[in-house]
Write a protein that binds this DNA or RNA. Sequence first.
RNA 1: GGCGACAUAGCCAAGUGGUAAGGCGUGGGUCUGCAAAACCCUGAUCACCAGUUCGAGUCUGGUUGUCGCCU
Length: 322
Amino acid sequence: MQTDEGTRQKAVVIAGPTASGKSSCAVALCRMTGGAVLSMDSMQIYRHMDIGTAKVTKEEMQGVRHYLIDILNPDENCSISDFQAAADAALAECRKNGVLPVLAGGTGFYLHAVVYGNDFGRDTGADRTLRDRLQTIAMEQGAEALHHRLEAVDPEAAASIHPNNVKRVIRALEYYEETGRPISAHNLEEKRRMPRLDFAGFLLQEDRARLYERINRRVDMMREAGLTEEVRGLLSAGIMPGATSLQAIGYKEIVQYLEGKCTEDEAYEAIRTGSRHYAKRQNTWFKREAGLERIDIDAFDCDPEKIAGYMLQRIKEKGILT
RNA sequence: GGCGACAUAGCCAAGUGGUAAGGCGUGGGUCUGCAAAACCCUGAUCACCAGUUCGAGUCUGGUUGUCGCCU
């Protein structure tokens, strides 16, 4: 691991809630800097999921190179370390070509992991059965029972994870089983980690009411653009409704509709509220993410060119770009 | 004009004499191998007035409002 100041790769980070205009700002900035976009989005990695993920179109890319989009089929899974590996490859390519990487996206967890290079351990593959076994315990004996097990081996983690959060409890137990170390100790180390990128970061912000209006409008546009048909196509292509990709907002709701569980109007209403909730969670995450300068997009008339222009100025001031 | 029903938090909605379930939304938050996921926290004195009662959202009368039916 390189930690010398001089060797840290320079980069730009653009974060923000859904529909805040990250993608267009990133493209605008890359056109000014000759940079490339690295998408930090957990769902745009999937091919054939374009409308519902608000993926940038070929035209919108305006010739700017985009990484980490369309890298998997919708029936595949991507763990955080898989994503990190793909991001590392993209970063290496940028470095080799002397291109400024612009990391833009709304998946805070992925973004953080790429910027800090957190260690998630090795995916042994053998844990598949362990995970299933723990899941079974949770279902048969209850979430509390599983939590008690964690309490026995890692009281610290047990104290910080709510018993109902079975996913996390399982992961903590799994980590202990595989490494013999409590995950709480590991997490403590990871929290001390410094960024491995020398970056200038921005957080796009907007008045809550306006953001919600924007989200509602975007969902309407998705419907007009044929989101229902896109989801129908995925299902008829054999993608299982339980696939990770189909848990995305905009997809799981339409699946419900196509399965006759609700009306199409209800599905789209659910997409709107789901998106609002998501935006809220994103804001919560980014609020505590260090190194992000807040940008009120209304102050720039929500114009990607103006925002990118400001970013360019700040990037230069910070010495990211000379 | 007459008859009947109903009025509980932003919305839906339990509760029918002992000091207000729940769901949704809203707001806040957690987060280190599924993260657009998973999970946690968050509100009212019951339309108004007057009675009965030790005690009323819950009973009685009136007022206002809403809905339905009838002439």
